[in-house]
């Protein structure tokens, strides 16, 4: 039959190679490759800054009611209660890796998905970066960090500083946006309780000149 003749010998050979290789993959014993992200890769990702959302990005998305961003406050529940960004949920850093009775990570459904971009924030960026790092090690995707945290939020969005008169149009536009955003978010009425990034100022003990030094050499 001519219909059969069209399938030439080499096609049959190629087809059997493909099927053979695919079959081999099915039959090979399962190999457990490292579940966690390799250290070099992690280092590479830590060093590039693509995980950051600027405070302007976040403000814009909150105002636009962007459903593709989920803000996650990684501070303590008390801090969250005192102040949090609109739409943010609270997953404190110490419970991020909590497991349920079956031994699965409780928050995996939120923290490892493709639909929404999770943006972590804390007062600075230390905690939010730690959360990001923990989750990235687990190969969780779609997680980001708000650059500068709430401190920067206050500095740029709530109390923006006016650029100098010689500033570029871009900077002036950004200032206009920030001022409008500031009004949207209720102006300068917010205060952040703890400043995690800035080490608590060590009280300077002034030596009084009149007193004699006790002891010492």
């Amino acid at each position: 039959m001519s219909d059969i003749r069209i399938i030439k010998k080499r096609y049959i050979f190629m087809a059997s190679v493909f099927i053979g290789l695919a079959l081999l993959l099915v039959l090979l014993p399962e190999r457990h490759t490292l579940k966690e992200l390799k250290a070099e890769r992690l280092l590479q990702e830590v060093n590039d800054n693509t995980r950051y959302f600027t405070t302007d990005d976040v403000a814009e998305k909150i105002i636009a009611n962007d459903a593709y961003m989920q803000l996650i406050d990684v501070r303590t529940p008390e801090d969250y209660k005192n102040f949090h960004l609109k739409g943010a949920i609270n997953i404190p850093i110490d419970s991020i890796l909590n497991k349920d009775e079956d031994g699965n990570y409780t928050y995996e459904g939120i923290l490892n998905q493709d639909l929404k971009a999770n943006v972590f924030y804390s007062n600075g960026t230390i905690y939010s970066n730690q959360v990001w790092l923990l989750l990235r090690r687990l190969k969780y995707k779609n997680n980001y960090v708000m650059e500068g945290g709430l401190n920067k939020w206050i500095e740029t969005i709530i109390k923006p500083t006016k650029p100098s008169a010689t500033a570029s149009q871009k900077e002036l536009d950004r200032y206009d946006f920030r001022r409008a955003a500031s009004m949207y978010f209720g102006g300068a009425s917010v205060t952040v309780s703890a400043e995690e990034d800035v080490p608590a100022p060590t009280p300077v003990i002034k030596k009084s000149a009149s007193k004699e030094e006790e002891g010492g050499c």
Binding site: F18, I19, A22, L23, L25, V26, L28
Partner: peptide, 8 residues
């Protein structure tokens, strides 16, 4: 892997 075999 089974899916790949079927796909092939």
């Amino acid at each position: 892997y089974v899916f790949l075999l079927l796909f092939v």
